[in-house]
Design a protein around this nucleic acid. Structure first.
Lengths: 127, 127
DNA sequence: GTAGGTGCAAAGGATTTGCTTAAAC
DNA sequence: GTTTAAGCAAATCCTTTGCACCTAC
C-alpha cells in the first residue's frame, strides 16, 4: 500500500462518522506532508469500498456519504443525521420478504438498506 | 396543472418501469407538440416526488432512477435490474429492528430500502 | 525494468438556477 | 392583473479520466 493510501486510511477513523469525499480530502490535506490530490482520494475510496472497509451510506447535498465499515458479516447502517455517527445494524431482509418477492416472480439479487435517525446526544440536544 | 406537467405525468406510465430524468425527457420530447425543457422535467419530477406519486429507486450510471409509486401506504420498491420494472414491497423495518436501534441510543426518523433482482421474464431469458 | 499509484488539471455529466416570456385564475 | 410555471441557456457541483512522473518490487 502506498504512502498516500496509508494516510487516507489513517484519516478515516479520525472523522468518526459519515463523510463525503470532499470531507476526507480536506482532512487528509490538513495533515502534514505534501498535498494529496482529490483524484487520489476518490481512487482510494473506491478501492476501500471494493475491499469492504468502507461503505456508501447515503448522500448529502448531492455528494455520496461514506462510512467506515467492519468488513465482517452482512449488515447495514444507521446514520445519525445530526452528527454523522454510524452504527451497524442487522439485515431486516428476511426469508418471508424474500419469499413474497419470489411469489411475485422476482429473484432478489441485492438490496440496500439505510436507516437515518438521531443518536442519544443529538436527540438530547434537540429536546 | 399545466400542459407540460400533464404531458410529463402522462408519459411516466408509458415507460413501464424505472427511468432516469434523461429517459423521461426523451420520451416526453418524442411526443407531438413543442419541446419540453430539461429543467421542466426536473421540476416536474421533484414536484411529483414531493407529492408521493414518484419515488427515487436507486441510481444508474450516476443518474437517479425514478419510478411510479402508488401514493398509498408505506412501502418500498423492488427493481428488476434487467428491464426496470418495479413492484412495491412491504416495509421490513419492524418493531424488533427499531427497538434494537433504540437500545443503541438512536431514534430512527427515516429509512430507505430498495431491493434489486430479476423479474420472471428476465430471469427466464437469462437461464 | 515494469507495473501500479500519484498529482494536477481538464473533461464529463447530471442537476439546478436566472431570467424573460407565456399562460392560468 | 397577478401569480405560477415554462423554456432556454449558462452555471455549478461531484466525479472521473488523461497523462507524465515517480516509487516499489
Amino acid at each position: 500500500m502506498s504512502a498516500a493510501r496509508l494516510r487516507i486510511a489513517a484519516s478515516v477513523p479520525s472523522i468518526g462518522g459519515a463523510f463525503t469525499a470532499e470531507d476526507l480530502h480536506e482532512v487528509v490535506s490538513a495533515g502534514d506532508g505534501p498535498g494529496i490530490g482529490v483524484a487520489t482520494v476518490y481512487r482510494a475510496v473506491a478501492a476501500m469500498t471494493a475491499a469492504g472497509s468502507l461503505a456508501a451510506v447515503g448522500a448529502r447535498d448531492g455528494s455520496t456519504l461514506y462510512a467506515l465499515c467492519t468488513g465482517g458479516e452482512h449488515h447495514h447502517h444507521l446514520v445519525c443525521t445530526g452528527c454523522g455517527t454510524v452504527v451497524g445494524i442487522g439485515c431486516p431482509i428476511d426469508g418471508a420478504l424474500r419469499r413474497s418477492a419470489e411469489e411475485a416472480g422476482y429473484t432478489v439479487t441485492s438490496h440496500e438498506v439505510t436507516l437515518y435517525g438521531l443518536c442519544r446526544d443529538c436527540s438530547g440536544k434537540r429536546a
